[in-house]
Design a protein around this nucleic acid. Structure first.
Lengths: 196, 196, 196, 196
DNA sequence: TATGAATGAGCATTCATTCAT
DNA sequence: GATGAATGAATGCTCATTCAT
């Protein structure tokens, strides 16, 4: 018997069920019993795989963050222009958000639940991605693609712009094309909004 | 039940205590008894002024939102350039965030608790401010101050940029000057980040 | 100023208000505040006249019992036949019940609330009335008006018959004439229900 | 929620414990914790079987009423005389009351707690038994066993007489023989109390 | 005397977690 | 391993009672 596989499959099923329930109800209103029901297993079984509700949530969060960052293209390829990279980043974020509304919310909004250990881990991942972004910005400035702006500030702003799209996207009456949206935003960021 | 007509600053004191406790612990981990203790009153007294924990939270939220929007300058004055208006908006937001860290978090992040009535009220306020912003953008486009961009999209992006500042601001090691920060951001938004 | 009168009047008003509220809601669901409101006074004032909710209820009960027994004719007049006395007793009970539905319920049904002291007092009053009834029965047996039956048992049964009328009377669709009802019941009790 | 389908005698044990506690303290003064303690289980376990205190009480009441009516013989057998039937009815009631003092009280006196649904159910059972009794009375009148009296009125009176016995029976100093008591009462009812 | 704002003991109920099967 | 019946700590809320005005 392939125990590892068996374990892994059930663990995964629990995480998927928990993702669904946590997304619908939020952490505090979600009940372990409902997670078990959705996963099609008994209540006690969850505790074979996770020590507590908090740890289960954090596993969900960890998983979601991984899935998110795996799907986001932050191309290191130096042959691409910064503008093209930015467009692709925004495009992949919009596509992801449209396809994983609940998951996006957990990644971006339900971070208050995290204990300090997870928070550190989460921050370190964000930091890593931020550093990556900052590096790309720095190189682009050197190459003369970008003006001499504060790379940190730009990085923060870009994150804000990207995050702000989740609201309108989840409100189902927004039928904007992802590619077009990415282009519009990229254009605004690159060339600014002032006339001329 | 509670017409909220009772005399004193006691209602206000409860709201302040609740703001503190809710901010520290979050809605679900906050205990009514702690709110009472912080307010320096008995547990039952809260219920003389608020019908339930939820209503108390919503009163806090309502109050916070009012305070926030009262402090944010969104100048209608048409003699000012759009750039100047934007700079002032960001500047007042940054100042507010620096002085009311907890409050900012409640206004921007803890909205999942709201019941539908409050949500509607909250959305209507946001909508109103958004409309205001969109109008200003439209006029500025007409006047030739801004390029012909999508006003709605810009409005959403600006909100995202502004919201994204809260994280770094509340992390206490960020010692940026509000005025300088506002100018930098405004400049980036107006002129874009591309070279030339 | 006639203080005694003033006191008495307010005390009486509280008892009347309490009677109404206790009757409608029952002891445990009645709230002191509502009693005060109905009495047109402040909550604290009740405690100027009664030490506690329980004592107020007991005052109401005491009052109700007095009013009840005062209105019930249990004629000692030996020139009347037992049958006539019984008819008058039932008639006055029916009339009282029709006019004081709430009060009757309190006297007959809400006795579980009483503390032991009040219970003793209440039982002693009942006992007294019962003794009176038993005496009348004994005399009537001696006089040859009644068969040689157990006076205690008859007394209990009569109380049961009388009490059983409260239900149908308070269900408002019972439009029986009090005098006729009293006659029918008396006849049944006196002559039995067997044919011949 | 609670389909009441769980296995064990545990549900029954809770009802028995609740019967005891409710009888001793009355509904409002009974505490769920005491019910749990008496049942020898944890507080939360009660809620595995009953949704609320009220539903537990109603289950107790329902159970008690069933037990009562199951034990009361209201013979339809037409070969028996009305007098014999009445004697058996009273006899079974007295026996039941002596053996289930607390339960009798709940069935006859604590009906104010019932919600309207249970009240309807309870009333319909009472109505059914009353109809049965009224029919027997009617037939007996037709057969010439009884005088031409109002069947409804007699039914009510009999209920009153039967109920009135509970008081003396539960006061422990009443040591009357059930059979003898039933005979005495039946005799009084049948032949009346007047001499000759 | 009259008031009603303030109080806090008391209790029903929830739900994460355990553990015997 | 898997289960779900059992548990009890935790907490929102009520309302009789007090007491400063």
């Amino acid at each position: 018997m392939n125990q590892g596989q068996k374990l892994g499959g059930k663990r995964e099923a629990i995480i998927q069920a928990a993702l669904q329930v946590f997304s619908e109800k939020g952490y505090h209103n979600a009940r372990m019993e409902e997670v078990a029901t959705v996963a099609g297993i008994g209540k006690g079984t969850i505790y074979e795989y996770f020590d507590s509700k908090l740890q289960l949530f954090q596993a969900v969060l960890e998983n979601s963050i991984k899935v998110y960052y795996d799907s986001i293209i932050l191309e290191e390829n130096p042959s691409l222009s910064f503008e093209e990279r930015l467009r692709r980043l925004i495009h992949s974020h919009v596509c992801f958000s449209q396809e994983n509304r609940q998951l996006t919310r957990i990644v971006f909004w339900d971070t208050e639940i995290m204990d300090s250990e997870l928070k550190d881990w989460f921050m370190s991942i964000r930091k890593e991605k931020e550093e990556q972004m900052i590096n790309i910005i720095r190189q682009s400035i050197k190459k003369g693609e970008l003006r001499d702006i504060d790379p940190c500030l730009l990085s923060i702003m870009l994150e804000g712009v990207v995050a702000s799209l989740w609201g309108p996207i989840t409100l189902d009456n927004w039928d904007m094309d992802a590619a077009e949206l990415a282009s519009s935003i990229t254009d605004m960021i690159m060339r600014g909004i002032a006339a001329q």
